[in-house]
């Protein structure tokens, strides 16, 4: 099974840089964005993105807004919310809005990787189902014609 394709979104550049290095060391393909807007732009040019790790508290467009936008445009891409304790309510709200899960900062690398893997697996199984459904549809149409 190939390693998941992940996007890391946070306004803290230092955090992103180190985390990116650590994720890449664990053979994940990592894309980074330093703001919500940046992230949405980058998603549009990377359609094979599987999981987004999204910080809730960001200046400008905050995590929740990005999540809502993502679910509207790319409902199949899984989102993991990353939060400080003060914004746990928004994380819960995020879960309600369709986030895959949330993690509290600072988080254990192993835990993060595990969550990402789960999210990616979910995404892949969904993709598979969709593919299968599509195939069936095509086959059915052929069978009919």
């Amino acid at each position: 099974m190939s390693k998941p394709f992940v996007m890391l979104v946070d306004d803290e550049a230092e955090f992103i840089d180190t985390t990116t290095k650590r994720l890449e060391k664990r053979d994940l393909k990592v894309l980074t964005a330093y703001s919500g807007k940046d992230a949405l732009e980058k998603v549009s040019s990377n359609r094979n993105l599987e999981v987004m790790i999204l910080d809730v508290k960001m200046p400008g467009m905050d995590g929740l807004e990005v999540l809502q936008e993502m679910k509207k445009k790319y409902p199949l891409i899984e989102v993991i919310m990353l939060t400080g304790h003060a914004t746990i309510e928004s994380a819960i709200e995020g879960m309600k809005a369709g986030a895959f899960d949330y993690l509290m900062k600072p988080c254990e690398m192993d835990q993060l990787v595990e969550k990402v893997q789960e999210a990616a697996d979910k995404k892949r199984s969904q993709d598979e189902k969709i593919e299968k459904a599509r195939m069936e549809k095509v086959m059915a149409s052929r069978g009919l014609s």
Binding site: E14, F15, T18, R22, G84, H85, A86, P106, M109
Partner: peptide
Amino acid sequence: AAGIAHEINNPVAIMVEEAGWIED
């Protein structure tokens, strides 16, 4: 206090990440 706690949280997260990176 809440504000300070939150602000400290981020640098601590970075520090832990960096340490983790060295460990890696």
